[in-house]
Amino acid sequence: MPVHHRHRNPPIGPEHDPQAALSIHDVTVAYHRRPVLWDLDLDIPRGVLAAVVGPNGAGKSTMIKACLDLVPRVSGSIRLLGDELAAVQGRIGYVPQRETVDWDFPVSALDVVCMGLYRKIGWFRSVRRRHRNAAMEALDRVGLADFAGRQISRLSGGQQQRVFLARALVQEADLYFMDEPFASVDAATEEAILEVLRSLRDAGRTVIVVHHDLQTTRDYFDWLVLLNTRLVAAGSIEETWTPENLRATYGGRLTLLEAAGWAMGTAGSGQRRS
């Protein structure tokens, strides 16, 4: 039903805060026409370390993927660093979930980190010494300089996660999206990752992290986005970290909304206001 709302929503442009690192307006995301994330509306200012928190299936990764255009959204608009994604793609860094790739792949840790530079290197040019030096520096920052030449399957889970982090570091982005970087890593790695994230934040970059561990959220982050198929709350950690918000986030699934999503999926009507 792409057009029938126009008579009620006059076509004024969405109000995005140009100063925000990430500005999401009215975004609904659907898989196979079934909405999984409803009416998202939020701004994240620049220079914060933000956590996206919510129960399983709340749409945390989906939100990040929607920001990067990795999943199609059915409505709404997103501005990154005050602009469309295509205009700022070189200033965006991304750390996918570790399980999404094949760690048996025949590349070394250094090769993986160099991938973060591929956009800068450009088409048809090969990786040169200075690129490798930059990658080595990034590996050193995450404490893996000794493992640069090692094939990635021979790294521990925590080290693999740090390789991904180094790949993001080498991108020298202004806005980072990280999908569960703390998932199943050892304490030392968690410490190392956190240190890197904080140094990024202190250097004025924005880091948006999908996080699963409520215990550490308060200590690690200074901005919080609470999701459960829709936005529950977003804001500085002091304002949003309230028992009511947390209860609203984790207090059970919105079965009716989910059922409505399924119904829209089967009716084929999920593509609204496209």
Partner: peptide, 24 residues
Amino acid sequence: AAAIPLDHLHATAMDLEHLAQPDL
């Protein structure tokens, strides 16, 4: 229950009101 902001209510409800599944 869903705590969707007021300014979004109408549009979303506009989509949902057409769902006619009896159990829903």
